[in-house]
Amino acid sequence: MSTTSETDGRSKKAGLFDIRNIIGALMALYGVILALAGLLGEHEPEKTGGVNANLWTGLALLVVGLGFFAWARLRPIVVPPDVDRADDDPTRPAPQRKRPPAH
């Protein structure tokens, strides 16, 4: 990571919007839902060959999700105090946002 050292007063951590936290949230949420489905729902062993696939996949996803949270906690990304507003990527037809005049 390129963002570990300089932490002056005005910079702050990326926190909730750190991409690792978003990945972690999705994986953990999927993990919980699948694990619950595995515990409470029909198990359908004739499809999987006897394994409770929902439960095990759910647990694995939960571990991966928590792993991403832990990584983001241990090595937080520090956002520099003066971030350029994202430029509109002209290759993308999403609704456009004008770049404010340079400061």
């Binding site: 990326a14 919007f17 750190d18 991409i19 971030v83 350029d84 994202a86 430029d87 990527d89």
Partner: peptide, 30 residues
């Protein structure tokens, strides 16, 4: 499960356009 995924994707899209956070700008600025 499909709906949750699209919720995440569209949610990120909306946040990105409104730039609710410096860090999103940080991630999106080239």
């Amino acid at each position: 499960l499909v709906a949750i995924y699209f919720g995440f994707v569209l949610g990120i899209g909306v946040m990105a356009r409104r730039s609710v956070s410096d860090s999103i700008d940080f991630f999106l600025s080239g």
